[in-house]
Structure formats: C-alpha cells, structure tokens
Computed example of a mutant assay.
Amino acid sequence: MEVSFYTSKREYLEKKSEFQQAIDKVLENGIQTLGKEVKDLEMSVEEFSGAKHAIGVASGTDALVIASDILGFKNGKEVITSPFTFLASTSCIAKHGGKPVFVDIDEETFNIDTTKIEERITKNTVGILPIHLFCQMANMDDIMKYAKEHNLYVLEDAAEAFGMKWKGNGESYRTAGTIGDMGIYSFFPTKTLGGYGDGGMVTTNSDELAELTKIFRVHGAKEKYHYDYIGYNSRLDTMQAAILLVKMKYINKAIEKRETISNWYRDRLKDIEYIKLPKVKGDQKPVYYVFNLLCEKRDELNKYLKGNGIGTNIYYPMPLHLQKCFSYLGYKEGDFPIAERTCKEILALPIYPEITEEEVDYVCKKIKDFYKK
C-alpha cells in the first residue's frame, strides 16, 4: 500500500466543481490584484477567528517579515523565540537586523518553554515571538503576562495553528493569532487551511497596526504612488483567495476529521514502548495539523516506513541555533538540549482529512512491525 504524506488530489476531486467555479469566476471577472475574493476571504477569516482585522499577503513568511518590521523587531533589538521551528519564524527578525534570543522548548509539547522566557528579558528586549506548533498553542497566559509586565510586543506565529483556541485565565476561548499584538497565518498547501500555492495573512485587533499592514503590503503607499514607508510587494493572490474561500466552507469539518485521525493514531500506537506521543497542555482546543511522535531509532524507522510506501517528514532535523545562517549569534551545541534531542527523535506521520482509516491502520502496523524486529 502507498500512503502519501499529503495529497491535494482527493480534496480536489471531491470538490472539483466548486473549485472550478471559483477559478472560472475570477477569470470571467478579469484578473486583478487584491480582488473581491481577497476581501471576502479577509472577512471570512475575521469572522472565523474573531480578529478585528485580517489582511491578506503573499505568504506566511511575508506576513512574519512585515509584522516584524511594523513592531520594531529590528536594528539590534532583541526578540525572544524558540530554536525549534521553521526558518521563517526567526529569519523575519534577522532580516531587519534584530537579534533572535532563543529559549529551549517544553519536551512534551514542542512549544517554547515559557518558564524560561523571563530570565532572557533584558533592557534591549522588544518582543516575544511564540510559535504554535503542530497541534497546540504555546502557553499564552505566561507570554501575555511577561509582555504586559515588561512592555513587550507579542507576534504570534500561527502559521500552523489555524483554528486552534486558547482559554486564558477567566476568559473565553480565543483563536490563535488573535491574542498578541499581531498574528500570522500561512496558507501553504499542506496547512489546515491551505491553498494551491503560497498565501498568508496578518491578523490584529489594532486599527493602527492593520492600517500599517495594508500600507506595507503595497510598497508602503497609503495612496497610489505616494510612499510613506519602504514597504513590500506582498498581496494575497486573488485566485488563491477564491480557492481558500471554497475550503473555508468546510474548515470546521476538516478540523474535526483531523482530530478523528489523531485519535486513530493515538489508539493504535499508545502501547508501543519505543515511541512517545505529545501531550496537549493548558486549557485549549488543539488542531492536528501535523501528527508527530518521538521514537527510538528514528532514522531507521523513517527509512523502513518509506521503504514500505509510507510518506513521512521530519519537523525539524536541526534546531535554528545550530544552523549556519545563525552562527553569528554565538550559540553552540548543548545550549538548548531539549530542542537538540527532539530534532533527533521526532517523526511526522501522514494526516489530512481525506486519509482513510485503512491507511492509518497500515501505517501503525508497519511501525509495530519495525519494533518487533
């Protein structure tokens, strides 16, 4: 049996007529940047997330870069974040000359260990950039407490967290990307809400920050050809917005199906002593964008699964503080031992709404077969 790590083909075939109608409508109306579909998607995301403002941009990476620029994560200022993440979560700080300050991760959630944040705050710190990874959010109660006490900005990297919710102290549930000063989503094809190409969005509850984001995404111009800032060319493509609007109609069902698939995996893998499943911590509602496990003999298992037709991925094989591009920060091996160890043990299994229970059974059987050898 072949089990793809991810495929868009099944979803496309299920909803082919709706996707085609959405695409045809864009073409029939005449191609335009920031077209009606972009505005409709922004309003749909605002309604879904509870954010006051959602601004479409070209990618999740651009969303991070633009938001970091606006919040002043630059010119030598320090921003506290995690070394266990995708490059863009930290390169957005370095791009503007800011200084990433890393904190190790919680070994059970893979998110930033918030108990270690305050000790890294200095007079030069301007912000915290938490990344909500894989299936759950970082501890936003702690993060917002530190931000308030030390007058720091919070930029939530919710690229993987569309639909996740956190319940703060004495508060109702709030959606990832809407708790800090600014948040971002990625619409990369594999994401919970993914397009057929790149796309991203910035969220904020601040009228001022929203206005700046809209200006920055069109070269820094509030009025055409009148530039108040050195901005970016970063507009969410109208065609991608049209596709995403179709997917938004089914987003709650897709999230529910991901949870069902996660439960299939947990039920079938819970008794294998050689693997460890992540724990969801805090009063939150997870969304299973990625299903990860920590496993003994990870590389051998990974090779075995691929040899049996099963797609896998490793998020992430090397922490950022050991990457060549960040060598100038002066970190060394051993500085963040939990992140380093996790990179050697973590493995992601296939999970997307269209995967079948039979396929999950096959994946789990092969994992069991490997450890019986």
Rank of each mutant, 00 (worst) to 15 (best):
H96W: 12
K99N: 14
K99W: 11
P100A: 08
V101C: 12
V101W: 04
V101F: 05
F102V: 02
F102L: 09
F102M: 10
V103K: 04
I105N: 02
D106A: 05
D106S: 11
E107K: 13
E107F: 12
E107G: 13
E108G: 10
E108I: 08
T109W: 09
T109R: 04
T109Y: 12
F110G: 06
N111Q: 01
N111R: 00
I112R: 02
T114R: 04
T114N: 01
T115C: 13
T115P: 10
T115W: 13
T115K: 14
T115A: 13
K116C: 12
I117W: 01
I117M: 00
E118R: 01
E118M: 03
R120H: 14
I121P: 07
T122A: 07
K123D: 15
N124E: 11
N124V: 05
N124T: 04
T125I: 00
V126L: 13
V126W: 14
V126P: 11
G127H: 09
I128T: 06
I128Q: 05
L129K: 00
L129N: 02
P130K: 06
H132G: 01
H132K: 06
H132E: 10
L133H: 04
L133T: 11
C135M: 15
Q136N: 12
Q136F: 13
M137P: 07
A138K: 00
N139M: 03
M140D: 00
M140G: 06
D141S: 10
I143T: 03
I143C: 06
M144I: 07
M144C: 03
M144N: 03
K145N: 15
K145W: 14
K145D: 15
K145C: 12
K145V: 09
Y146Q: 01
K148H: 15
K148P: 11
H150I: 08
H150G: 02
H150M: 11
N151A: 12
L152S: 08
Y153A: 11
V154D: 01
L155S: 03
L155K: 05
E156R: 00
D157W: 03
A159D: 15
E160Q: 15
F162D: 10
F162H: 12
F162G: 08
M164D: 06
K165Y: 13
G168D: 12
N169I: 14
N169C: 12
N169G: 14
G170F: 04
G170Q: 02
G170A: 04
E171H: 00
S172H: 10
Y173S: 09
R174M: 06
R174T: 01
